[in-house]
Design a binder for these strands. Structure first.
Lengths: 120, 120
DNA sequence: TCCTTCGCTTCGATTACCGAAGCGGTCGTC
DNA sequence: GACGACCGCTTCGGTAATCGAAGCGAAGGA
């Protein structure tokens, strides 16, 4: 349950995901994460460090711990589902021209685009 | 990637997880989610509805769609990892008094919740 | 009728998040 | 040695997300 809280925070899953290929420094990692805020990034990093999911190399790069590797692998089915999901709902989105119901199509329809709703 | 945005929001993973056993009404679901805010819950529900992950029964209860079921199954390895993770870091927590953030299960309480992951 | 529960909404007050700027440090180049 | 160009990381003001409590109309049970 605590894991749902840890990973329920913004960018934490993404950070875990972006470290899958190997260790990354602060700024390279930041760039990979859609240029997320450095302050939030530091927050997530300390949280993940504290959770023993990542650790810091002598050259100060971040790397998945064995525990983190397992988490990343555990994330694989979800990633696979995401593809299936995107393939399923994207056609729907392309179809809807007159549909404004359901509170207005919040979620991002494309990769990396995160401007759900709440347009003041 | 868009999935990381959808599930990166607070409570969305939790809602998905709590619906695993079957359909639930608004308030029962709310109670199961650590009594989360009803306003945010409505937000998440519409997002998940819009994402075709859940749908509403004639009696207005919420249920996972087939797509949602797959997502829930894709979440299983992560849940299994969470147990392993909790077992690994909980002993560490006994030592530290500075348990800010992740490791200490901020408000989602501890993992020991009767039968954590086993089938109820 | 009274009382409870339901799905759901509204609203003020925290909190999380963003974005840009900045600091001290290392490295390569002139 | 002075100059950039990066680096890890921090601080800060503004904006968006989240909370918590209250409330509404409807559907039941006693």
């Amino acid at each position: 349950m605590a894991a749902l809280d840890l990973f329920g925070r913004r960018w934490s899953l993404r950070i875990l995901w972006e470290l899958r290929a190997g260790p990354l420094g602060f700024r390279p990692l930041q760039k990979r994460c859609d240029d997320m805020s450095s302050s939030v990034m530091r927050q997530r990093l300390t949280e993940l460090l504290d959770a023993r999911v990542i650790h810091q190399l002598p050259d100060s790069r971040y790397e998945l711990t064995p525990l983190g590797q397992e988490a990343r692998h555990a994330l694989n089915p979800l990633a696979r589902w995401a593809e299936h999901w995107a393939a399923t709902i994207d056609p729907h989105l392309a179809d809807r021209t007159d549909d404004r119901s359901a509170g207005g199509a919040p979620h991002a329809d494309t990769v990396g685009e995160g401007s759900p709703e709440g347009k003041p």
